[in-house]
Design a protein around this nucleic acid. Structure first.
Lengths: 189, 189
DNA sequence: GTCTATAGTTGGATAGAC
DNA sequence: GTCTATCCAACTATAGAC
């Protein structure tokens, strides 16, 4: 049984893609309704609080999407370092192939709204913490003590976010591949 | 002899501060002229190509500012790891004190414009590469081979940019301090 | 070189018919 | 729940007096 995609879901998916690429202020409500095909009235029916509410829910959608992606990537290898390297290198390959950072880069919207739109900031914070938990779980699985695993998970999260920016700016997956090669030192016991 | 600050410089400094905090699309030309005190006519006299030209030159200003800051921070310690840790921890302290990431965070404007405003992208790319050169020089000074130094410098750059985002999102300098503590592993020989 | 006034467009948001 | 028409504020940019 195929689940019909509701108008709300269509709007949210279009919004999520646009926000990832152009950021919060760079994306207009009119652009969202144009891409989703929905009329402006529907949008304000489903999201009465307007743009900020759409962005908050779009961030939650990105969060769930990335959780799935990370879980899949990290479970492909038996070796800890190789698992994380596979994850990062796959992001690099996707970027080189598509020319856009179409996954796992929330940094733009997070930095833009951190000091001005509290509800979006909270959603971004929750997303980052969820991803870090996935990393930390994997690290503990391989013998890292809880506190150390937490610090490493934050470091890995930071490296990836930063490398996404450097890759976009230099138009090359090289920075991402570069941090992948430093993971053995970082995760040495 | 005190050098008088030209109208152009005042505009550029205001623009630079606003772009760092609010990003490219989040900052209006009207806001820049309001903060700088200059009238709109002057702005378009000094920057005929408008907002994009202001942003490009504002990024160059940030670049030079950070170059000075990095050179100063890295020269305070004789020990390699301690020098970099001092640098990162100082960013964390500044953030905790001021509540804003007022230095060394160009990620917002870089990601926002990477795919749409080529001249700004090039300016950001040049800034990142300049900072990485400073890091790489320090690393080579302490015996790292050229290629390895380059990869580490990119990694450090990525970690800092990413940690700035996480610190802003979580409203705490903790992520920055966290990556500082992982530097001994990363820079071990 | 400096400043004002304003053009022209797009932004987010709303009212009300269906 | 869906869609259209429309409001008003904000935006970038320009023209032209001084």
């Amino acid at each position: 049984m195929k689940k019909k995609e509701s108008t709300k879901d269509v709007i949210l998916e279009s919004a999520s893609n646009l926000f990832k690429l152009q950021g919060y202020h760079g994306t207009g409500v009119s652009q969202i309704i144009e891409k989703s095909g929905a009329p402006k009235g529907s949008l304000y029916y489903h999201f009465p609080k307007g743009k900020e509410e759409i962005a908050t829910e779009a961030v939650n959608l990105m969060k769930h999407h990335v959780v799935g992606l990370v879980l899949k990537d990290l479970s492909t290898k038996d070796n800890l370092v190789e698992a994380f390297q596979y994850h990062v290198n796959r992001l690099a390959s996707l970027f080189d192939k598509n020319g856009i950072m179409d996954c796992l880069h929330m940094g733009v919207i997070a930095s833009e709204t951190a000091m001005t739109h509290e509800s979006i900031r909270i959603a971004c914070d929750a997303a980052y913490k969820d991803w870090q938990s996935l990393y930390a779980n994997k690290l503990e699985e391989f013998g890292f003590e809880s506190e150390k695993a937490k610090e490493l998970s934050i470091t890995i999260n930071a490296m990836i976010e930063g490398a996404c920016i450097l890759s976009m700016t230099s138009k090359s997956g090289y920075p991402l591949r570069c941090i992948a090669r430093q993971l053995p030192m970082l995760l040495a016991k």
